[in-house]
Structure formats: C-alpha cells, structure tokens
Computed example of a mutant assay.
Amino acid sequence: MLIRVEIPIDAPGIDALLRHAFNGNGEADLVKDLREDGLLTLGLVATDDEGQVVGYVAFSPVAVEGEELQWVGLAPLAVEEAYRGQGLAKKLVYEGLDSLNEFGYAAVVALGQPEMYHRFGFVPAARFGLRSTWPDTEAAFQIYPLAEDALNGVSGLVEYHEHFNREF
C-alpha cells in the first residue's frame, strides 16, 4: 500500500472510487470541478500493489467570514470497500494533516460523521463559535487546528467554495 500525492494519471481511478464509494456522481464531479479550477490544495491517493486507487482524500480552501486564513476543508474521503476497517482512512487523513502542517496551513475543517472524525483528532467547530453554511450540521461540523494560534479571535461562518453547494 502506497499513500502519495495524486498525479494526473490517477484522475480516472479517483473518479471511479468516488462514484462507487458514494453511489453516485456528486463527489466525483465535485473533485473534477475543483481540480479543473485549481482549487485542490492537496489530494492524496492510496494505491494497491498494482497501482490501483483504493483510497482518496482531498483538501480545498475555505474562508471564515469571507477572509482567507490558510484554512482548508477535508472532502471527500473515500476508501474502497475491500480495504475498509484497516485504518486506511486514518492514514490518508494523518498524511494530509502532516503535509498541510508542513505547508503552513492553520486549520482543517470537515463535515461528516462525528465519531469518525473524533478518532482522527477533530473536535466540534461549534466549541469555537464556528458554523458551516448548511443548516442542521452543528454536530457534524468539525475542526482540526494545525497552528497553535489558528483559532485566536476567529469565529463565524466557514464557507466552502460554491462547488460544494450543488445537490449530491
């Protein structure tokens, strides 16, 4: 198993993984559009021994109250069904967090299953007065500060790129 930064040749494998993992086109189309618009801050793939994409995580810029603060949003995260339960999602997320920290990013937000993201070290964003644009997501909206001062004086609405506002 190899985890590395995605390269152009991975795009079809990422697309197939996302369509299969999410039972539809929404996440695959989202990643394609983010990639085409240069809005993927970081994309990591996990490949098997044959080089097939079996896991993927993407990070893209977010703003807080319209201000760019070197924050990114984690989405989507997917692991091929045969590889689930082996810690691959955790490895992808941690590799992404480590890389983003090295690149000087301040925080990562995620909207997803609280139990899963808590295992990765994320905490409820509402604790810090942060909220997402989507209603009724307080429990699912999580944050992972990378910089010690990432949350100093920061609160309000965290906005993802408009590509995230499509129907999935």
Results as ranks from 00 to 15, higher is better:
residue 1 M to V: 08
residue 1 M to H: 12
residue 1 M to G: 10
residue 2 L to N: 08
residue 3 I to H: 02
residue 3 I to G: 03
residue 5 V to C: 04
residue 6 E to F: 06
residue 9 I to M: 00
residue 10 D to A: 07
residue 10 D to Q: 07
residue 10 D to L: 09
residue 10 D to T: 09
residue 11 A to G: 03
residue 12 P to C: 13
residue 13 G to M: 09
residue 13 G to P: 11
residue 14 I to C: 07
residue 14 I to P: 03
residue 15 D to H: 14
residue 18 L to F: 14
residue 19 R to V: 14
residue 20 H to I: 10
residue 22 F to V: 04
residue 28 A to G: 10
residue 29 D to S: 14
residue 29 D to A: 15
residue 29 D to G: 07
residue 30 L to Q: 12
residue 31 V to Y: 10
residue 31 V to I: 14
residue 32 K to Q: 15
residue 34 L to P: 13
residue 34 L to Y: 14
residue 38 G to P: 06
residue 39 L to Q: 15
residue 41 T to W: 04
residue 44 L to G: 05
residue 44 L to R: 11
residue 46 A to M: 07
residue 48 D to M: 07
residue 48 D to Q: 06
residue 49 D to L: 07
residue 52 Q to F: 00
residue 53 V to Y: 01
residue 54 V to C: 13
residue 54 V to W: 05
residue 55 G to W: 02
residue 56 Y to K: 07
residue 56 Y to M: 10
residue 57 V to A: 05
residue 58 A to W: 04
residue 58 A to H: 04
residue 59 F to V: 03
residue 59 F to S: 05
residue 60 S to T: 13
residue 60 S to D: 06
residue 61 P to F: 02
residue 61 P to D: 05
residue 64 V to K: 03
residue 65 E to C: 10
residue 66 G to Q: 04
residue 69 L to G: 05
residue 71 W to P: 02
residue 72 V to M: 02
residue 74 L to F: 00
residue 75 A to L: 04
residue 76 P to T: 08
residue 77 L to E: 02
residue 77 L to T: 02
residue 77 L to N: 03
residue 78 A to I: 01
residue 78 A to R: 10
residue 79 V to S: 02
residue 79 V to P: 02
residue 79 V to E: 01
residue 83 Y to T: 00
residue 84 R to I: 04
residue 84 R to S: 08
residue 85 G to C: 08
residue 85 G to L: 11
residue 96 G to S: 01
residue 96 G to Q: 02
residue 98 D to P: 00
residue 99 S to N: 02
residue 105 Y to Q: 01
residue 107 A to M: 05
residue 109 V to K: 00
residue 109 V to W: 01
residue 111 L to W: 09
residue 112 G to R: 10
residue 112 G to Y: 10
residue 113 Q to N: 15
residue 114 P to G: 13
residue 115 E to W: 08
residue 116 M to I: 15
residue 117 Y to R: 13
residue 118 H to R: 15
residue 122 F to A: 06
residue 123 V to Q: 15
residue 124 P to M: 14
residue 127 R to C: 12
residue 128 F to K: 04
residue 128 F to C: 03
residue 129 G to D: 12
residue 129 G to E: 12
residue 130 L to A: 11
residue 133 T to L: 10
residue 133 T to K: 12
residue 134 W to R: 14
residue 134 W to L: 13
residue 136 D to Q: 11
residue 137 T to Y: 05
residue 137 T to Q: 15
residue 143 I to N: 08
residue 143 I to R: 04
residue 145 P to A: 02
residue 148 E to W: 03
residue 148 E to L: 05
residue 149 D to W: 07
residue 152 N to G: 04
residue 153 G to W: 12
residue 153 G to M: 09
residue 153 G to Y: 11
residue 159 E to H: 04
residue 160 Y to N: 13
residue 163 H to V: 08
residue 164 F to V: 06
residue 164 F to N: 11
residue 165 N to V: 01
residue 166 R to P: 01
residue 167 E to F: 07
residue 168 F to G: 02
